[in-house]
Amino acid sequence: MKFKKIENNKHEEKIIKKANLEESFDDFIKDEGLLDYNKIPLNKAEIKGWVKWAFWFLRIYILIMVILVIIGFSKIH
């Protein structure tokens, strides 16, 4: 059995009929971000300045919280 999302061809035709693209289809696709972003690489952020501090804050916060949670849970049981 083949599952298919509910597609309304009539609806599709109506939209296509009304569409009045002044630009090229490729430009429309680009403008609207209708691309497969899995295939577009995204650079890793450079960790410097205040961002570096933010990450250290996060690490310390998580570490403290995990230690406190372990202590707390061990008290419960």
Partner: peptide
């Protein structure tokens, strides 16, 4: 031509493109 171009897109992006065409109109 528009229909053919839309049909070339992956199904999820095609459906999104139709919604965006509606918004464009």
């Amino acid at each position: 031509e528009l229909k053919d171009k839309l049909d070339e897109l992956p199904i999820d992006i095609k459906l999104r493109a139709l919604d965006r065409l509606k918004i464009h109109v």
